[in-house]
Amino acid sequence: MSEAHRHHAIANLLEERPFVSVKELQLMLRVSAATVRRDIDKLDDAGVARKVHGGLAALEGGRQRKAVSLPFVENRDIAVEAKRAIAVEASKLVRDGSLIIVHGGSTCFEFGTRIANRNLRVFTNSMPLAAYLSEQGTCQLTVGGGDLHREPGILYDPARGGYEFYAAQFYVGALGVSQDGLLENHPLLVRFINDMCGLANEIIVLVDSRKFSERPSSVALPLSRVTRLITDDGLSDRDAAMLEEEGVAFSIAPTARGAA
């Protein structure tokens, strides 16, 4: 495949997806990682797409795209600086001695690493986070039971009855955010989020600013249920205005990119 044909194929893919990784492009185009990285640099220089850590992102301001949920091992390497900044900001809301629920996903994972050694009881169904906390943390850890769903990487039994605890806070991520609420593609996650929201006094949403341009198929939680949303300084004025109009309290986590 010629360079021009590769670039055309990549541009078409980004019409449907907000991000494509180097590994995915290698498999799709059947070329080396070095070739993919050269293509990414050229598309970024040409203003066709935006080079980001781990791959290539569609330009902001384009038409709304259907969100695609990436595997955790790929997603954790995307927008890392923003996710870590959000985790730092979110950790300031945690009260020592409390019980908190932490959802799955890469942003919540970054948050979990920040509070791993706090005086807390942490309940999570996230397999990656539970593994990290068991090896690296000192907090009390309770892992939810049920079947292992490798993607999205949680333990969950939808048929289970109510849990016998009540948490101070539920820290939750989402695949997308709109004026309708938190958005997900996976029906299991919609069910899980609703279950956990009924067990917490405060619902804290952790989403990087890319999530405001993604449109998954299902509303997992209306914005009226959100206590506070934390995002990064890439949040657009339009999306900030939407949150204000919906009455959502939100915090902006500063990044080095935003300070530049």
Rank of each mutant, 00 (worst) to 15 (best):
H103A: 15
S98C: 07
Q26R: 15
L14S: 03
I78C: 04
T142G: 02
E246R: 15
T35S: 15
G234R: 00
S126K: 03
R121I: 07
L141R: 03
H7D: 12
Q169P: 07
R76C: 10
I203E: 00
L175Y: 00
L59R: 13
R38A: 09
Q179V: 15
F165D: 08
P71F: 06
C139G: 06
Y166K: 12
G181C: 02
I203Y: 01
E81G: 05
D233Y: 00
V122E: 01
G144V: 08
A9Q: 15
D232Q: 03
P152A: 09
T255N: 07
H5N: 12
E15Q: 13
V102N: 07
E184V: 14
R63S: 13
A116Q: 06
D44Y: 10
A9E: 15
L29C: 08
R76D: 03
G61E: 05
F123E: 03
L56Q: 09
L13R: 13
V172A: 15
G146R: 04
R118W: 11
K23F: 11
A58W: 04
V94H: 05
L175W: 03
G55A: 10
E81S: 10
R215K: 14
E24S: 08
A131Y: 07
V94E: 05
D96Y: 02
D77T: 12
M28E: 11
D232E: 02
D232P: 01
D41K: 15
A46S: 15
L70K: 02
E15K: 11
S213P: 00
G153Q: 06
T124M: 06
M127V: 15
R50G: 00
A240I: 02
A33G: 09
S178Q: 14
G258V: 04
G162D: 14
A46F: 05
C139W: 04
S213D: 10
G144P: 02
L25H: 00
K51N: 14
H8Q: 13
T255W: 04
A256I: 09
G234P: 00
L29M: 09
G247D: 02
G176D: 08
I204A: 04
L223Y: 00
G97Q: 04
Q26C: 13
L120K: 02
P152Y: 10
V219Y: 01
D39S: 01
F170Y: 15
L206N: 03
S32L: 07
L133D: 00
D195A: 11
G234K: 00
H186L: 12
P222R: 01
R65M: 10
Q64F: 08
Q26L: 07
E135W: 04
S2V: 05
L120H: 03
E24R: 07
P187N: 06
S32R: 05
I154S: 01
N201F: 10
V205Y: 03
G54A: 09
R215N: 08
P222W: 02
E214M: 12
D147E: 14
F192P: 03
T107P: 05
V48R: 04
G104E: 13
S217R: 14
R150N: 07
V102P: 06
S209F: 00
S2P: 08
A240E: 11
R160N: 12
E81K: 06
V88R: 15
V31W: 10
E184N: 12
V73G: 10
H5E: 12
P254E: 14
E184H: 08
C108E: 12
Q64Y: 08
E16W: 11
